[in-house]
Simulated scan of single mutants.
Amino acid sequence: MSESFTAKQVAEHKDVDKGLYIIIDSGVYSLESFVDEHPGGAKILKRVGGKDASKQFWKYHNEGVLKKYGPKLKVGDLKEEAKL
């Protein structure tokens, strides 16, 4: 079963030591095991750690990349938070 995360929980995982998480659309992905394999380099992943990286991801990747790597990197989904 997939875990649910708030944006605040994802933000706590902003570096490799804390488990580098990013958000793509509504999915939460753990990248600490992938950071050294990323063809664009580790620096770009570390820059978006703990944040919603959807805009940056879709700018440089197509749907095939998410289909290929998503299943092994996805750790959960983003919870919908109440808007006050």
Rank of each mutant, 00 (worst) to 15 (best):
Tyr60Phe: 11
Glu63Lys: 12
Asp36Ile: 00
Thr6Lys: 00
Lys74Cys: 11
Ser33Val: 11
Lys18Arg: 12
Ile44Gly: 04
Gly49Tyr: 12
Lys18Ile: 01
Lys55Val: 11
Gly41Ala: 07
Glu37Val: 02
His61Pro: 09
Lys74Met: 13
Lys43Tyr: 08
Ala42Pro: 12
Ser33Phe: 08
Ile22Arg: 07
Leu66Cys: 04
Lys68Gly: 01
Gly70Ala: 00
Val65Glu: 08
Asp17Val: 02
Leu73Gln: 12
Val10Pro: 02
Arg47Ala: 15
Tyr21Pro: 00
Gly41Met: 04
Phe57Tyr: 14
Tyr21His: 15
His13Ile: 08
Met1Ala: 10
Leu78Ile: 13
Val48Thr: 00
His13Thr: 09
Thr6Ser: 09
Leu31Gly: 05
Leu45Pro: 06
Ala11Ile: 06
Gly40His: 05
Asp15His: 10
Val16Gly: 06
Phe57Lys: 11
Gly19Thr: 12
Lys51Cys: 07
Gln9Val: 09
Tyr69Gln: 00
Ser33Tyr: 11
Lys72Gly: 02
Asp25Tyr: 01
Ser33Pro: 03
Ser33Thr: 13
Gly49Gln: 11
Gly70Cys: 01
Ser54Tyr: 09
Lys8Thr: 00
Lys43Ser: 15
Ser4Trp: 01
Val35Lys: 10
Ser54Leu: 06
Val28Gln: 04
Val75Gln: 05
Glu37Ser: 14
Asn62Phe: 08
His13Lys: 14
Phe34Trp: 10
Glu3Thr: 13
Ala82Val: 14
Val10Asn: 07
Glu63Phe: 02
Ser2Asp: 15
Asn62Val: 08
Lys55Tyr: 07
Ile23Ser: 03
Glu80His: 14
Tyr29Pro: 02
Lys79Met: 09
Tyr60Ile: 08
Gly41Phe: 10
Gly76Asn: 04
Lys72Leu: 05
Gly64Lys: 13
Leu66Met: 14
Glu80Trp: 08
Val65Thr: 13
Ala53Thr: 07
Leu84Arg: 06
Arg47Pro: 01
Leu73Val: 11
Asp77Gln: 07
Ala53Ser: 13
Leu45Ala: 05
Val35Cys: 07
Phe34Pro: 00
Asp52His: 06
Ala11Arg: 15
Ile23Glu: 03
Pro39Asn: 08
Lys8Leu: 00
Tyr69Ser: 00
Thr6Arg: 00
Asp17Trp: 01
Lys18Glu: 11
Glu37Asn: 14
Gly19Ala: 06
Ile23Lys: 05
Lys55Pro: 03
Tyr21Ile: 00
Asp17Ser: 13
Val16Cys: 06
Lys83Thr: 10
Asn62Ile: 03
Ser30Phe: 03
Ala7Asp: 09
Lys68Val: 01
Leu84Phe: 04
Gln9Phe: 09
Leu66Phe: 03
Gly40Met: 04
Ile22Gly: 10
Gly40Lys: 04
Asp36Phe: 03
